[in-house]
Amino acid sequence: MKFSRRQLAKRDARGSMLFLCIAVLGVMLIIVGVAFSFYLVFFSHQHLQSRSEDLAMECARQLNENDHGGKINNLIGHSRELVFTSRELYYRTGNEEFRGLQGLAAQVLEQSRSGALLVAEDRNRYVDFSMEKLRKIVKESESRNQGGLFLTSFSAYGGEVVDLRVGDMDQLVSNVEASSGVYNLHSYDCQQKYVMTGKQGDLFVSNVNLKLPNEDSDLVFQLASLPAPVKGNAAPMRLTRGKGFKHSLILRDAGQDKTGKCVVIPSAVQVTMTMKVKQNVVGEFDSKTKTVNTACANGAWIEP
C-alpha cells in the first residue's frame, strides 16, 4: 500500500502531538500521584493514632480494673493504722496495771506487722500480674493489627509498639482518707506532711513512703496516685496529653521487652507506636509515622 507525501507528513505531525499529549498526561499523573501519597501518609498517621489511643485506653483500664488498685491502697492505709494502734497498745501494756496483757498485745502487734507485710507482698504480686497482662494486651494488639493498609502502590504496615511505660501523672494525692480517729497518728502524719487537707477531707500523699515512727519505720507504706472519689463519683479513665507523666517502669524500650519491678501500682500508661509507610507511585518512598499516647486509669471507688 502506498501513502501520498501529504498523508505521511500528517502522520508525523500527529505522532509528535501524541507524544506531547502523553507527556502532559504523564506530568499530571505524577502530580496526582504525589498528592495521593501525601494524603495516604496523613491517613495512615490518623489510623495509627486511633489504634494507639485504643491500646493506651485498654492498658489504662487494666491498671485499676474493678478498683483493685484503689482497694489495695485502702488496705495499705488500714494496715498502717493497725500497726500504729497495735504498737500504742503494746506500749500501754508496759505499765504495771496492764502488764498481764503484754503477751497478747505483743501477739496483736506481731500479727498486724505481718499483716502489713502480707498486704505489701500481695500488692507486689498484683503489680506483677498487671504488668504481665499489659504485655499480653500489647502482644495481642500487635498480632491483631499485623495486616496493615494496602492500596495499589501504597502500603502502611507494622503498627509496632516501640515504647511502653507505666507510671503516674505527677498527682500528689492518693485515694486514701486520713482518719482523724487515731489522733496521735493523724497529728504525726500532719507533722510529717503525709496528709493533704482538702474540702472533701484529708487525703494521704502518694508515691511517698509513709513511714511509721520508731520501731515500725522499717515497714514500707507507699500509696498509688489514684484519684479519690468526689461526691460519690469515681474519676473515669481518660486520655491525657502526657504532660507531667512520670514513668516508674519501662515495659518496652525501642521495641525490646524489659524486665523490672514497680514499687507502687501505676496509674497511667504511655504507649509509643510506629508504622512503616511505603509508596512507589513516584519512585520509592519509605517513611515512618509515630504516635505517643498517654492514658490515665480510672479513679478509686467509694470505700464500702
Binding site: 474540702k199 484519684p227 468526689v230 461526691k231 481518660r238
Partner: peptide
C-alpha cells in the same frame, strides 16, 4: 470528667 479531690 473527674473532680479535683482536694477542692471538689
Amino acid at each position: 470528667m473527674g473532680c479535683d479531690p482536694l477542692s471538689g
